[in-house]
Amino acid sequence: MQNKSIFSLTCPVLKVEQVLEHTYILTVEADTEKLFFKSAQFAMILVNLKSFPLLPRPFSIYDQREGELDFIFDTVGLGTNELANKQKGDLVKITGPLGNSFCLEDNFETGIIVAGGIGIAPFKMLYEELLTKGKKVQFYYGARNKNLIHKIPSAEKLYRISTDDGSEGFHGYISQLLEKDLLETMPKNARVFACGPNVMLNATAQVAEKFGIPCEISLESVMACGLGVCQACVIDETNSDKYKLICHHGPIFDSKEVVLH
C-alpha cells in the first residue's frame, strides 16, 4: 500500500551563481521526473551529508529544466552560507516536491505578481505559467535598494520597482506603489500573487482587499521536516483557535485564511 509522491534524492551540485551581493542561484542535477515541481512548491535541501548543520532547509523552486533544478536564496545563516560555497560535484539531499502551488484555475484575466526581496523566488515559474495560460501579467518588485533587485530576464521589462531608499523606481514600499497604480487603473478580474516578508505581505493583502482583489500569499517558516510531521511551522488560522501548518496546508494561502504577525 504505497502512494509514492515525494522523493528524497542525493543530487550533485552543477553550479552556484552569485546574482546579487547576498543572493545566489544553486543549480543541481536531479531526476526531474521524480523531483518535478509546480511553481511555488518547495524542497527541503540538506546542504551536506554530514550532521552539521543537522537539518534540511526549505527553499522554493526557482526554475526547472529536464534534469536540472534551480533554487534562489539569500545567505542568512549556517546553511545558506555553506550552500553559497558549494562546488560542482558536491552532494546535497533534496526532498520534494512539497506543499501546494498557486491557484491558476480560477477565471481571472490579470495576474498581479508582488515580490519583496528574495520573495522573487516562486515568480519566475509563475510568470511563465501565467503567460502560457494567456493571462495578462503585472509585475511588482520591492527591494531595500537598487542593488538588491534580482532581474528575471524574461520578465524584467515588466518590472514596477520600489525601493525603501528611493535609489530606483518608486520611493517607498511595494504595497504603496501597487495601491497608487490601482487607484489610477483598476485591472478587470485580477488576482494578486505575493511573496516576501510578512509585513510586506500584510500590507499587500490589505491593498488587495481594499480593491476587492483575491490575494494569494506564499509563506516561509523555520521547519524541520517539510512534510507536516514536526509541527514547527504553525501560523494562526483566521477566526479560529487553530493553527495551520505552512508546509502542509501551504506554503500558498489565501491572504484571508491566515493571520500574519
Binding site: S51, P53, L54, V222, A224, C230, Q231, A232, V234, Y243
Partner: peptide, 23 residues
C-alpha cells in the same frame, strides 16, 4: 491539543530543540 506558540524549534550543534507541546 493546539500545542505551543511558535517559535517551536531551533537547530543546535548536531541536534535540535523542540517545544511543540503535544499538538
Amino acid at each position: 491539543r493546539k500545542g505551543n506558540k511558535p517559535q517551536r524549534i531551533v537547530e543546535t550543534p548536531s541536534g535540535m530543540l523542540n517545544a511543540i507541546g503535544l499538538a
